Computed example of a mutant assay.
Amino acid sequence: MPKGPHPCVRDLKAVYTADVSTTVHVQVTLVSPDGDRRSGCTGTATESTRTVLPQALGGRELVVDNYTVFTPDGAKPPALRLCGDLGCHPAPTGCTSDSYVQALKTVDAPNHSYQDAVDCRGKWMVMQFSWPTGAASCGGDDKGCGSRLGDRYFFRAEKSGWRPIAEGAAGGCAVVQAREPDFPASMCENLAPLPASLHPHYSPAPSAGTGSASPTSR
Rank of each mutant, 00 (worst) to 15 (best):
204 P>C: 00
137 S>W: 11
185 A>C: 01
150 G>T: 11
184 P>R: 09
167 E>Y: 06
203 S>V: 08
162 W>Q: 05
148 R>G: 02
142 D>V: 08
161 G>V: 04
175 V>T: 15
211 G>A: 01
149 L>F: 09
187 M>D: 12
132 P>H: 06
196 A>L: 04
145 C>T: 08
126 V>I: 13
141 D>C: 03
163 R>K: 12
193 P>G: 05
139 G>P: 05
214 S>G: 06
160 S>G: 03
146 G>E: 12
206 P>I: 01
200 P>M: 06
159 K>I: 07
134 G>I: 08
196 A>R: 12
125 M>Q: 14
136 A>C: 09
212 S>D: 07
189 E>W: 05
211 G>L: 01
163 R>F: 02
197 S>D: 14
132 P>G: 13
194 L>T: 08
137 S>Q: 13
142 D>T: 10
142 D>H: 03
157 A>T: 12
174 A>I: 02
180 E>M: 08
193 P>K: 08
182 D>W: 01
133 T>I: 14
211 G>C: 02
207 S>E: 07
170 A>H: 03
134 G>D: 08
162 W>M: 05
182 D>Y: 00
187 M>C: 08
128 Q>A: 15
127 M>E: 15
170 A>M: 13
177 Q>K: 13
172 G>D: 06
160 S>R: 09
186 S>N: 13
208 A>V: 02
134 G>W: 07
184 P>F: 11
160 S>N: 09
136 A>H: 09
203 S>K: 04
192 A>V: 11
125 M>E: 12
165 I>M: 09
144 G>W: 06
139 G>I: 05
131 W>L: 04
207 S>F: 01
191 L>W: 10
171 G>T: 10
213 A>E: 03
176 V>W: 07
182 D>A: 15
124 W>N: 14
141 D>V: 04
151 D>Q: 15
174 A>E: 12
169 A>H: 09
162 W>P: 04
178 A>V: 00
194 L>Y: 10
210 T>G: 00
202 Y>T: 07
169 A>Y: 05
165 I>W: 02
213 A>M: 01
211 G>Q: 02
148 R>H: 13
197 S>K: 13
192 A>R: 15
149 L>Y: 11
174 A>V: 07
175 V>N: 07
185 A>H: 10
154 F>I: 05
161 G>T: 05
170 A>S: 13
209 G>M: 01
130 S>I: 03
138 C>T: 13
159 K>Y: 03
151 D>M: 12
169 A>K: 13
181 P>M: 02
189 E>A: 15
139 G>L: 06
188 C>A: 11
214 S>K: 07
192 A>Q: 15
158 E>F: 04
126 V>C: 11
161 G>A: 02
146 G>H: 09
146 G>F: 11
150 G>A: 10
214 S>F: 04
165 I>Q: 04
208 A>D: 05
152 R>C: 11
141 D>M: 07
199 H>I: 01
188 C>L: 10
140 G>N: 07
142 D>Y: 04
124 W>R: 10
131 W>N: 04
184 P>S: 11
126 V>N: 14
